[in-house]
Design a protein around this nucleic acid. Structure first.
Length: 114
RNA sequence: CGAGUAAGCCAGACAGCCGCGUGUGCAUGCCGAAAGGCCGUACACGAGGAAAGUCCGGGCUCCAUAGGGCAAGGAUAACGGGUAACGCCCGCCGAAGGCGACUUUAGGACGAGUGCAACAGAAAUAUACCGCUGACGGUUUGCGCCGUCAGUAAGGGUGGAAAGGUGGGGUAAGAGCCCACCGGGCGGCUGGGAACAGUCCGCUCCUGUAAACUCUAUCCGGAGCAACACCGUGGGAGGACACAUAGGUUGGCCCGACCGUCCUCAGGAGGUGGCUUGAGCUUUGCGGCAACGCAAGGCCUAGACAGAUGGCUGUCCAAUACAGAACCCGGCUUACAGACUUGCUCGUGCA
RNA sequence: GCGCCCGUAGCUCAGCAGGAUAGAGCAUUCGCCUCCUAAGCGAAGGGUCGGACGUUCGAAUCGUCUCGGGCGUG
């Protein structure tokens, strides 16, 4: 991912949860917060409740892939955290993609579509 | 052909586009005093049979320990072998199941001691309720009946279990009291490397329970890669030096603000190593029933640190299960869609 | 990684050095009481003791394996 690094430290996640805006569907929750200028950052949270290691890996990889494919459309300079909910373990890739795009529009993370 | 049984093996394949981790090479664009880091690009490699549960056994590291033993605590339990070791594996014996191939098996000791055995039953490890028998006494013409004392585990019913079982002799009635056969135990003899087996001989100890305490034999020091080693801002402890209207830092100077200096020790956050070449995999030959061992040749096969395998499309296929390395090995256990191979057994038919 | 605990009625818990009817409180249903309700009183229903296998004459209790849940600690 060219302009996006990842959020790693727990306090950074906490800052986004507390001080950021959020939106949710049944599958995922998206938090966002204005961060460094020109650099976007992505954090993924897939808790133990979602499933076993294989299931969590699959959900995380799908979310990462969704973000990667739509990175070009996103506004820069935001810290974004995507939290997977329990239902996401049975969702298809297409469902996850649809929900993410809807939430991104709602939070104003995407550039205005031409 | 059908039914079964045992063992082994695979764990979707191929192609295209986008994307990820590690290593090597190239390029030198950016940062840096340098070491090096970031970015780009090419190539190679990139999860499992259980990576899982964490139930055992080790390696490795640190701590403790002169060396050894005892106690405590824990584990294991027929015998022989394999192994680095094991509670694992192989072979074999006994027991149980199956027509059979074969499967299952915590399988030492209750003849060292202690405990427990509810309810039922007269009585539960010792016993006389009913019954049977004898003696004495009473009663009766007599048979018999009643009482006291003694003998008796053959019969009754209870129970998981009632002094090993069956038959005969014997006796007042009975009893391993005696005999024959049988079960189990102990000692001897024969066979076997051993467990063990035996139409052999002797003894006569014979309820069950040790996944009850216990006894016997063997084994075990503790903790874990977040171990441990190195670097290590700030702060801490100790020592030496300096003793204060001093000195240092900030600053051109004053005011103001802050502060002892050096050395040693332990070391939070963070970083680097540990980190993958190993009781390794594989081919052939030899030894062994086998587990396995030996020799020669070949191969290098993830190493992350918020943690790499995903998305889309097409073809084949009946369909894709259980599931993600985290210091490393040997096992065990558990989960699992299916595909394939081989040996053997039983039944049926044909020649 | 290491260590520990708990699964029993719809809920909260007893019973766990084996003994055969598995109890208690709350809740549920029915009856009494009351003009009605609550409270009170009386009764009833509801459990394969998380699962499987074993030891034993007999297992909620003992052993092994397993499933689920929770906690401590570096």
């Amino acid at each position: 991912m060219k302009v996006t690094s990842s959020i790693k430290q727990n306090y950074e996640f906490r800052r986004v949860y507390n001080a950021g805006k959020s939106a949710a569907t049944g599958l995922i929750v998206v938090y966002c917060r204005r961060g460094l200028r020109g650099r976007s950052r992505l954090g993924l949270t897939v808790g133990t409740k979602v499933g076993k290691a294989v299931v969590r890996n699959k959900v995380r990889r799908r979310l990462k892939e969704i973000y990667r494919l739509h990175e070009a459309e996103m506004r820069r300079g935001f810290d974004v955290v995507i939290v997977a909910r329990v239902k996401s373990q049975v969702a298809t890739y297409q469902q996850l993609e649809k929900d993410f795009l809807r939430l991104a529009d709602k939070l104003g993370l995407r550039e205005d579509q031409p």
